[in-house]
């Protein structure tokens, strides 16, 4: 299979008129994990959302070497965020089958990371096969999280963008999830995970984000606006 390399250079991002990311550079290749660390509010989630194409970047480039050129980085990626994207009134299997159908043909074509699992295999791997025909609303928080992970298994995409993947999981579920992420890495996938907890993963690189101190390039935050107000004061004085 192709060797992939996700390259971010000088990535910057504004949220709500404030710069939350500035000059973020990193490279992750196949069979590697990048752990994005930093205190709360430092832009870990924003970085993942920028890579996933959910938030527009203000600056910089994000490229995937070895990927399908006609598809965006986001189309090579699974995004696993805080929300489970489950419909409580649909059955577990209906939920999973929908996301499989919805993602499948657009899935990664530049060499498969590995064969996709069937829905039931995925549920079985995650230990929730017995819930397949039940409405997703009956699942516990941990089970819902596992069902959400199952989406990543039924459609193979090489990049996994994981935002606090172990939150809301008990010890056992965490072990299962970490095992699946490790499998994905060993199979040649690449992982970008934002977390404030230590994650025990193979081939790990770290990216430490610190709060943005440089002045935002956003128009209304510019210091040069002070001139206007200073002049006013002089006029009055």
């Amino acid at each position: 299979m192709n060797q992939l390399k996700l390259i971010c250079q000088g990535v910057a991002c504004d949220r709500g008129g404030r710069r939350v990311l500035n000059h973020v550079d990193f490279e992750v290749g196949s069979s590697e994990a990048l752990i994005v660390q930093g205190p709360n509010g430092v832009g870990k989630s924003s970085l993942l959302r920028v890579i996933a194409g959910l938030v527009a970047k203000a600056n910089g480039t994000i490229e995937l070497e070895g990927g399908m050129p006609e598809r965006s980085v986001a189309e090579h990626s699974h995004y696993f965020g805080h929300l489970d994207a489950l419909k409580p009134l649909q059955s577990v299997l209906e939920n999973l089958s929908f996301w499989r159908d919805f993602f499948e043909p657009a899935a990664f074509g530049g060499g498969k990371v590995r064969e996709s699992m069937s829905e039931l295999e995925a549920l079985d791997t995650l230990g929730i096969a017995h819930t397949a025909s039940l409405p997703a609303g009956y699942l516990s928080a941990g089970q819902r999280r596992r069902l959400s992970v199952a989406r990543l298994l039924v459609v193979p995409r090489p990049i996994w963008l994981l935002d606090e993947p172990t939150s809301a999981l008990d010890k056992a579920s965490e072990e299962v999830l970490l095992g699946l992420i490790a499998d994905h890495i060993h199979a040649g996938g690449l992982v970008v995970a934002a977390t404030h907890l230590p994650l025990n993963l193979p081939n790990t690189k770290f990216l430490n984000l610190s709060p943005v101190t440089t002045e935002s390039e956003h128009m209304f935050a510019g210091a040069d606006l002070d001139d206007y107000f200073d002049e006013d004061e002089q006029d009055e004085g």
Partner: peptide, 9 residues
């Protein structure tokens, strides 16, 4: 907006 940016900072 300037005030908003200052407050956020």
């Amino acid at each position: 907006r300037r005030i908003r940016a200052m407050r956020m900072r």
